[in-house]
Design a binder for these strands. Sequence first.
DNA 1: TAAATACATGCAGAGAAAGATATATATAGA
DNA 2: TCTATATATATCTTTCTCTGCATGTATTTA
Lengths: 107, 107
Amino acid sequence: MKNYNRKAEIFQILSHPVRLQILDELRKREACVCHLQAVTGRPQAYVSQQLQLLRAADLVADEKEGQNVYYCLKDEFVKVLLFEALGPAGPPSHPPSCTCPFCSQEK
Amino acid sequence: MKNYNRKAEIFQILSHPVRLQILDELRKREACVCHLQAVTGRPQAYVSQQLQLLRAADLVADEKEGQNVYYCLKDEFVKVLLFEALGPAGPPSHPPSCTCPFCSQEK
DNA sequence: TAAATACATGCAGAGAAAGATATATATAGA
DNA sequence: TCTATATATATCTTTCTCTGCATGTATTTA
């Protein structure tokens, strides 16, 4: 039963559209919070909350770089689940509203 | 976003320990409700409720055979997820309290 | 040094959904 | 009639979702 509980927790985290979208974006490339804000169309505090959840579950890693904090997906099990659920990772998004280094550089 | 929503629903169903246990049992072999009752240690109405959920999500198929109703896992995607989460399916359980055909036959 | 940017965190509150349990009834088959 | 199962209802509690807002902190830039 303990094994079921632990796995159920991970499924629980994946059972949310916005978190799923964030994780899908992170498996394409590391991304800062403002990028995830633009991709999901959610307010900053909300995105930070979800990221806090993902950090607490040890699914993502964060690294500060200048003003920005970059997140990346570090859990291999979740990577497999995302692949099974969504197929291979697509190209990174470029929301017009995003001004992060990656997005401005590539536009 | 729609794709995220649909997949999130499936993850949501898997995010529950008892449902996970039921699905794990069903991928080993078809099972009647009384068997799942014995395996999970939950009351009949409760197990039926969860099975109703699984049926509504089209993850399991049910077939009446005499008095019993046998359920089996019919969703390939869920089978893959279970394999990734729990590894290969183990041997079917034989709870002593279960009097279903399979269990009495094999004891 | 001051201001702006990016992010984290906390709190409050409303509404929705989920979990658990109990109970009662209906139905089909042996 | 007995058994196995489905279904419905009700209730209670807990958790989740979302929003809004306020504040703290570190870093960069002016």
